[in-house]
Simulated scan of single mutants.
Amino acid sequence: MTVQVPALPSDRYAVVAVASSAGGIGALGRLLKDMGSDLPVPVLVVQHLDPRHQTVIAEVLSRRTPLEVKLAEADETARPGTVYIAPPDRHLLVSPGGVLTLTSTELVHFLRPSADLLFESVAGAYGPQAIACILTGSGRDGAMGADAVKSRGGTVIAQDPETAEFRGMPSAAVGTGAVDYVLPLEEISTVIRGLVETKRRG
């Protein structure tokens, strides 16, 4: 059965995409804890996980947030107030209408899932209605995708590298010049809530 998700007005944000890697479980827990139970948009997450082990990330994060947290499934429609996490070794993409896709296509920068691919799909599906957020992590994953989100009129947030457990990913994102907000971790959820609950300025 296809779930019909009411479309948000075009002048409001419709999705939050989050990328994290090393140190990310703790950072995600802190971010989602303060997001509230009535978030009016879905949250799509790429957290780099070891594909050799079964993951319990959804269960771990569920204990830290009032939001529903689950591993993303192919062909499901992203619902507001739900956190969808890319399963280990699968790229997570989203198409217009919020339909999720999982793929095993080639690694990007030696990674699968790839934050760049998620962000690029979010940019294409949502344009200016998208928010991308890059948290702690080593490497550069998410930087190209953040640039794609910004180029389509979306908003990009990065954890302040000085406050990140691993600063590689947020530093690379900031280095693109595409980041709108550089914030300590504890301030990011407040800013996201403020963005998704108010109209975008034209």
Rank of each mutant, 00 (worst) to 15 (best):
M1T: 15
T2V: 12
V3T: 13
Q4D: 13
A7T: 15
L8M: 14
P9Y: 14
P9W: 12
P9F: 15
P9A: 11
S10D: 13
D11N: 15
R12E: 12
V15N: 15
A17G: 14
V18H: 10
A19Y: 07
S21E: 12
G23W: 01
L28M: 11
L31H: 01
L32F: 11
D34W: 05
D34I: 00
D34S: 10
M35H: 07
M35K: 03
M35N: 06
P42L: 08
V43G: 08
L44H: 02
Q47R: 05
Q54H: 12
Q54R: 15
Q54I: 11
A58P: 07
E59W: 09
L61F: 00
L61Q: 01
R63E: 03
R63Y: 09
R64M: 03
T65F: 02
P66E: 07
L71P: 09
E73Y: 00
A74I: 14
A74E: 14
T77C: 15
A78L: 05
R79Q: 15
P80F: 11
V83K: 05
V83C: 07
Y84L: 06
I85C: 08
A86S: 12
P87Q: 11
P87F: 03
P88F: 01
P88R: 07
D89N: 09
H91Q: 12
H91Y: 11
L92K: 13
L92M: 11
L93C: 10
G97R: 02
S104E: 14
T105K: 06
V108S: 09
L111N: 12
R112S: 05
S114H: 06
S114G: 10
S114C: 06
A115K: 02
L117H: 09
L117A: 13
L118W: 06
E120D: 09
S121T: 11
Y126F: 00
G127Q: 07
P128F: 09
Q129W: 07
Q129I: 04
A130D: 01
A130E: 00
A132Q: 04
A132D: 00
T136S: 08
S138P: 02
G142M: 00
A143M: 04
A146T: 10
D147M: 15
V149L: 05
K150R: 14
K150S: 13
S151F: 04
G153L: 06
I157M: 05
A158K: 03
Q159S: 07
D160K: 03
D160Y: 05
P161Q: 01
P161T: 07
T163Y: 09
A164N: 03
A164K: 04
M169G: 04
P170S: 05
A172V: 05
G175Q: 14
T176I: 13
T176S: 11
G177Q: 11
G177R: 07
G177V: 14
A178R: 04
V179W: 05
V179F: 04
Y181V: 01
L183F: 01
P184N: 04
T190V: 03
V191I: 03
I192Q: 02
R193W: 00
G194R: 04
T198K: 13
R200A: 05
R200D: 04
G202M: 15
G202E: 15
